[in-house]
Design a protein around this nucleic acid. Structure first.
Lengths: 258, 258
DNA sequence: TGATAAATTCGATGATATCGAATAACTATT
DNA sequence: AATAGTTATTCGATATCATCGAATTTATCA
């Protein structure tokens, strides 16, 4: 289907960046050797090259970590998305009214990536960092992306890439039960997650559509709701759905005349 | 002085990422060919490889742009810095009290990079995006970094890398005048910029020190102040200096017992 | 439909990334 | 203070692999 020439050295360089990104703390060259399976000198050459571009940086003790230029490029990516600007005021309203964390997410391969977050209301603890990847099958945004897949085959492919694993006793791992849940989500137009990812946390996600009616982003609320039937949670559902629709409209108007 | 082996293909790949980052809009392969001077097929191979890692993405019309993985890595970089977490509440306070934009910056080569921003008070327009690079010689944070350089040679090297160019009639381009300004900054412990970057904008930056008393970050306020002698601006100077000192202390305490 | 431009594929060539081993720098321990 | 164990870094020969121009396909516009 796709895939041009593979430049192996670049391939390896990207793999190293991903390893450094997964690790919370800076990594030693020996550690990178074990994790990547590449020879030390090869790693050293690749890292040296990327260091000159400030894509990685090396601290005084010799350990390597991601560099400042990656932060800059990441910000450039964020700024290039029209949706972040459009959604920002809605995120703020959503979190201040519900008192929970509002978020904007997109699908990336078989996972969901949080694009932006807001927790205006109370100083609730951070649920998940912006820019981190979350599973599809046990988050409201993830299940939304699964439910609105273009085809059954696509849906199955995404689930096969990351097979459901129980995160809590409430995680839906049974294929049939999950399929039923996804049908329900599609029917009602929003997704609810009931402590399936973290005990005590509940969330709702509503669809933001792009041109052609395809699902593009998820707008949601996550927090320490007691049940998914409380008036507070019901309000969160209604607002998320309303705002998501408004964002869809604004995006459409924006793309109409660039 | 330093610099291991240069892996040329990786070098080229990084150059392409930087080109894509500088451009606001997605780029065509032909455009990249003109800007980079590399043959089309070489570029194609490099981009294809990076596309598989989601470092770049290609939209329906064939044009290339930076990919989602770069956003994720950028967020990881941001999260890895202890200073962003420590400074966040001070940024919020600073902007809400002064009604202007508060920022946290770091030096990157011969430029200053904005790490984080806050504009709680009024909905002032965005002065500069987070993650963007600004000149040293005509911003308060930049002049602060120049003033606290480890050596005269270092200072001269940074200025030579980006020779002062007038951005406004108030930009200091004369070497002697700039040297005097930097001495003054070092003496008073903070830097003031008086419309030297953008007409009407004024800013102040205070130093955040790391271990050994070396300047690490700059905490500042920028906004539409009428003069640098108004009570509002004087307050901004005092608060920025106070908060920067407090952040320095918190960072030191944090690094004491990890 | 034809014309223009762009993205992509292909294959031979030689430049160059690779790899293991040796060295240097550094830390912690005795 | 000396050593043992770690780690980053350098080096050079070999064959792999990236490179490049031209050809092909695909898309866009008149």
């Amino acid at each position: 289907m796709e895939g041009g020439k593979k430049i192996r050295s670049v391939d390896k360089a990207m793999a190293l960046l991903e390893l450094l990104g997964e690790s919370r703390s800076p990594m030693t060259l020996a550690e990178l050797e074990r994790r990547s399976g590449l020879p030390k000198s090869t790693i050293h050459g690749l890292l040296s090259t990327m260091r000159e571009h400030h894509m990685v940086s090396q601290q005084a003790d010799g350990r390597y970590c991601l560099g400042l230029r990656l932060f800059e490029l990441g910000c450039a990516v964020s700024a290039s998305w029209d949706v972040t600007g459009v959604a920002a005021p809605y995120l703020a309203k959503l979190s201040s009214v519900t008192g929970a964390t509002a978020f904007l997410a997109v699908r990336s391969g078989g996972e969901a990536v949080t694009l932006d977050q807001s927790r205006e209301g109370s100083g609730l603890r951070i649920v998940s960092e912006t820019g981190c990847r979350l599973p599809l099958y046990c988050t409201s945004q993830g299940k939304l992306f699964l439910a609105y897949c273009s085809s059954e085959a696509e849906q199955a492919r995404l689930l096969r890439a990351h097979p459901p694993v129980p995160h809590t006793p409430h995680t839906i791992t049974d294929p049939d039960q999950l399929a039923q849940e996804l049908r329900k989500i599609r029917a009602q137009g929003y997704a609810v997650e009931d402590g399936e990812f973290r005990i005590g946390l509940r969330s709702v996600s509503a669809p933001i559509f792009g041109l052609g009616g395809t699902l593009q982003y998820a707008l949601g609320v996550v927090g320490l709701f007691r049940r998914t039937t409380t008036p507070e949670f019901t309000l969160a559902i209604r607002l998320a759905t309303e705002y998501a629709a408004q964002i869809s409209d604004e995006l459409e108007a924006l793309s109409g005349r660039p």
